[in-house]
């Protein structure tokens, strides 16, 4: 069980190389090996979506992936979404202005999911947004302000184009 492999990958544009047990999940590798604790674990069985990251631009549940499977891939986590240390991304800004988060625990998965979604669907309807986040559980907000934030972010992103 303790066999290890070297995992080399890119996270948020930065190259990492670390030893990982072959059974280590990608989530635990990101959180505990690389210290990127912004990715959260809510269920560890692939339903809640809190651990969602982008793998080569596509959403993936980091609790259902092994670290060794990420070898050679490019990962984006919540820590990689803001353009700088002082600014937030338009989506993050929209979450703040629309009160789209309360405890903030599901938020990283919501942000990564919506980052992919708004890239692929720049002008979505409310129903499309709801379907897009239907694999992400939030217990605090009742989703309404998350949906409003996503629609607001779509407008901000379009205006910036």
């Amino acid at each position: 069980m303790t066999e290890t492999r070297k995992v080399a990958l890119t996270v948020n544009g930065k190259r990492y190389e670390a030893e990982a047990e072959v059974r280590l999940t990608l989530a635990d590798f990101l959180r505990h090996t690389l210290g990127l604790t912004g990715t959260h674990l809510g269920c560890e069985h692939g339903v809640c979506g809190a651990c969602t990251v982008l793998l080569d631009g596509q959403t993936a549940r980091s609790c259902l992936m092994l670290a060794v499977q990420a070898e050679g891939h490019a990962i984006t986590t919540v820590e990689g979404l803001a353009p700088s240390a002082t600014e937030l991304s338009p989506l993050q800004e929209a979450f703040r202005d629309n009160h789209g988060l309360q405890c903030g625990f599901c938020t990283p998965g919501m942000l990564t999911t919506l980052t992919e979604f708004l890239r692929d669907n720049p002008n979505p309807t409310e129903q499309e947004v709801r379907i897009a986040i239907s694999g992400n559980l939030c217990r605090c907000t009742g989703y309404q302000n998350i949906v409003l934030a996503a629609l607001d972010a779509a407008k901000r992103l379009q205006a910036a184009r």
Partner: peptide, 21 residues
């Protein structure tokens, strides 16, 4: 008023229990 809690939460910087080292 916008929440003071939000920016670090949105950046993944707040420390929850499993993030305490």
């Amino acid at each position: 008023v916008n929440r003071v809690e939000d920016p670090p939460l949105l950046r993944g910087e707040r420390r929850f229990i499993d993030d305490i080292i």
